[in-house]
């Protein structure tokens, strides 16, 4: 499914003393399935992009085209059709929870679609398995979970109805290294086997460097640069946007200052082999 933004601007509280510009003439186009990351410091408008793609708000200027529908000509029937193909995980997972048990929470998305009880239960267990939570979580209260489990549960609530576009807002904040590696495996499977479009809104450049295909850099409400993963290797632009360069990149840059020529590897094991080969 394609997502095309054409000179989109988003202003809130227009014509009042509290007017604020969140996005300023953003244009980009996503046509194939894959993993795309929008990186930027806080207050640069990342969450707004997620909100606009999932049709929660309308832009003040410009047009958005999702899957063949243009936002200016959307009828109610089309909006409902589109919404079942887009899933969005909020930055604060607790603001997505409405029910008092985990099983009710996950099945909330498919309650009104007429599934039989056995297939519903099967789907709930499958989606829990995808995010690596076990059956003992089914009767817990979502508001009592800790951050890691809450984020995984929010992701499971989205995966159960199998959307084509998955938008994740700062999913790696507060996760440990092993959970991040599990997420990397999950996203790779979703991209390769199921051909989904995954949009990551994040300021964690090290995580994005490991899996993303394409990078869009946002800074103070504008889209200042975009490109493949190599954009993250340009330390000057990244630092000017108030972000931390990926850790591998800063190590390799410090290493190459001694006149050597080390490649930018993807993970730490390859990096170690490269250093070993270079030193000896």
């Amino acid at each position: 499914m394609e997502i095309i933004f054409d000179k989109v601007s988003f202003v809130i509280n227009k014509n009042t003393p509290l007017e604020k510009t969140i996005l300023n003439t953003i244009s980009f186009s996503i046509t194939e399935s894959g993993i795309y990351s929008f990186i930027g410091a806080s207050n640069s408008g990342k969450t707004a992009i997620g909100d606009l793609i999932s049709l929660l708000y309308k832009p003040t200027r410009g047009s958005i085209k999702i899957g063949g529908y243009k936002n200016s000509r959307l009828k109610k029937k089309d909006i409902n059709n589109l919404k079942s193909k887009i899933g969005y995980v909020f930055k604060n997972p607790y603001s997505m929870f409405i029910n008092d048990t985990v099983s009710k929470e996950i099945s909330y998305a498919i309650d009104n679609f007429g599934y039989k009880k056995e297939s519903k239960e099967k789907r709930i267990l499958e989606s829990l398995k995808l995010v690596e939570l076990d059956e003992s979580y089914l009767e817990k209260n979502p508001f009592d979970l800790n951050i890691t489990d809450a984020k995984k549960l929010a992701l499971a609530c989205i995966l159960i109805y199998n959307p084509k576009i998955i938008i994740l807002d700062e999913i790696t904040n507060g996760l440990s290294v092993s959970d991040k590696n599990k997420l990397i495996r999950l996203f790779r499977m979703l991209k390769n086997k199921y051909r989904k479009t995954i949009i990551l809104l994040s300021k964690d450049t090290s995580f994005c460097y490991q899996i993303t295909d394409y990078v869009y850099l946002l800074s103070y409400t504008r889209l200042i640069d975009y490109g493949t993963k190599d954009l993250l290797e340009n330390t000057n632009i990244i630092k000017n946007a108030n972000l931390e360069p990926p850790k591998i990149v800063s190590f390799v840059n410090a290493y190459n200052k001694k006149g050597r020529n080390l490649d930018y590897y993807n993970n730490i094991l390859d990096l170690i082999k490269g250093v070993y080969r270079d030193v000896f």
């Binding site: 440990s176 800063s250 190590f251 170690i272 070993y276 030193v279």
Partner: peptide, 27 residues
Amino acid sequence: GLGMPFIVELNKYLMDYGIINKYYLTN
């Protein structure tokens, strides 16, 4: 299931290979 900071992991691997023999905590 806990990891290590990037620079500490790097130091550990290099120490296993015998290239360095103590921790250096900045690039």
